[in-house]
Simulated scan of single mutants.
Amino acid sequence: MKSQKKILNQYKAQILFVLLSLLLIISCGKQKTLFEFSTEKVDRDIVDDIKKIKVLPHPGLLYNDTKYEVWKTCSGEWGGTVYFKNKKSGKIYYAEATCPVSVNKINNKYYISNSLSHLFGSSDILEITDPEKMSQTTIIPLYHPGIITREYESHSSKGAKKLIDTAGAVIMSSFVYKQKLYSILLNYSNTKATISELRDNKFYTIKEMDKDFFSEHPLIIKESETYQKIYLQQPKPGIIEIKENKIKFISYTKSKK
């Protein structure tokens, strides 16, 4: 009799385990994915859409908020710099950053995504809690991709904390969703393009994407912290539209001869 009860209890435990496992699987299956991805093809030339942009961003101006303008200069392998100009006082603070491609703000901290395609490629992300603890300068040099400004580049890291420093990967742009920072990366070693989350000072892949949607020279129109459009003419014409957690990849099927 005791042995029968023991066997019955074992069966009950096994059945309970199976039921709990099924509930867990069902629960996981119902969880929504973090981002919603979609694709679209349009039968027109991307140049025509770029011409419709009313105000093109200055190549050196990365970010604007109520207190600061954030500018950049880049001299490639000779270095780069990020500048914070206080709108009220006019004072300028700067730090070494090679080379800034994106500025994002989370909980009143600034995150500078830097990328350099020289040789095997490299990238890093800086955290700046208080720009006015950075070194001070008196001028923001004129920046244009064709102008070398290396004699002005900063060599100071004061006030800037490096969260991650990678070799072999470059960043096209970064964006914020639910107070977390995400970057669009290209890994030179395996030519994989990904959308990755910065977590515990490491990159974690959220989604692998078509590498044809990665360009080292995109046109980025940033409408807000959670909305940007990235225009690409190389390697193939397209747009990545990021709005909150909705990410759309738009391909163009026409090009001017």
Rank of each mutant, 00 (worst) to 15 (best):
residue 197 E to D: 08
residue 183 S to R: 04
residue 40 E to I: 09
residue 231 Y to V: 01
residue 156 S to Q: 05
residue 96 E to D: 11
residue 226 T to N: 15
residue 141 P to N: 03
residue 143 Y to F: 15
residue 48 D to T: 12
residue 98 T to S: 11
residue 181 L to S: 05
residue 206 I to C: 02
residue 222 K to V: 03
residue 98 T to D: 09
residue 19 L to F: 12
residue 257 K to R: 10
residue 95 A to L: 03
residue 244 E to K: 01
residue 8 L to T: 11
residue 94 Y to N: 04
residue 88 K to D: 06
residue 39 T to F: 15
residue 94 Y to T: 07
residue 4 Q to R: 15
residue 214 F to I: 07
residue 86 N to C: 04
residue 69 E to Y: 13
residue 94 Y to H: 12
residue 251 S to G: 00
residue 196 S to D: 08
residue 120 F to R: 05
residue 33 T to D: 15
residue 151 E to R: 11
residue 119 L to M: 08
residue 162 K to N: 13
residue 82 V to I: 14
residue 109 K to P: 14
residue 70 V to K: 03
residue 90 G to P: 09
residue 81 T to I: 10
residue 222 K to F: 05
residue 155 H to S: 12
residue 61 L to H: 10
residue 10 Q to F: 10
residue 176 V to N: 01
residue 237 P to A: 08
residue 225 E to T: 14
residue 124 D to I: 05
residue 105 K to P: 08
residue 199 R to F: 08
residue 228 Q to G: 05
residue 47 V to D: 04
residue 186 L to C: 06
residue 78 W to P: 05
residue 34 L to R: 14
residue 128 I to V: 15
residue 38 S to P: 09
residue 242 I to A: 01
residue 223 E to R: 13
residue 239 I to S: 02
residue 116 L to G: 01
residue 227 Y to R: 04
residue 81 T to Q: 12
residue 95 A to P: 00
residue 192 K to D: 09
residue 122 S to W: 11
residue 8 L to G: 04
residue 113 S to L: 04
residue 173 S to D: 12
residue 162 K to Q: 12
residue 4 Q to C: 13
residue 154 S to W: 06
residue 103 V to N: 05
residue 79 G to H: 01
residue 202 K to D: 14
residue 233 Q to L: 13
residue 96 E to K: 07
residue 165 D to Q: 13
residue 99 C to G: 10
residue 122 S to N: 15
residue 223 E to S: 07
residue 250 I to C: 02
residue 194 T to I: 05
residue 204 Y to L: 06
residue 125 I to H: 06
residue 230 I to Q: 07
residue 215 S to I: 01
residue 112 I to G: 14
residue 214 F to M: 09
residue 122 S to V: 05
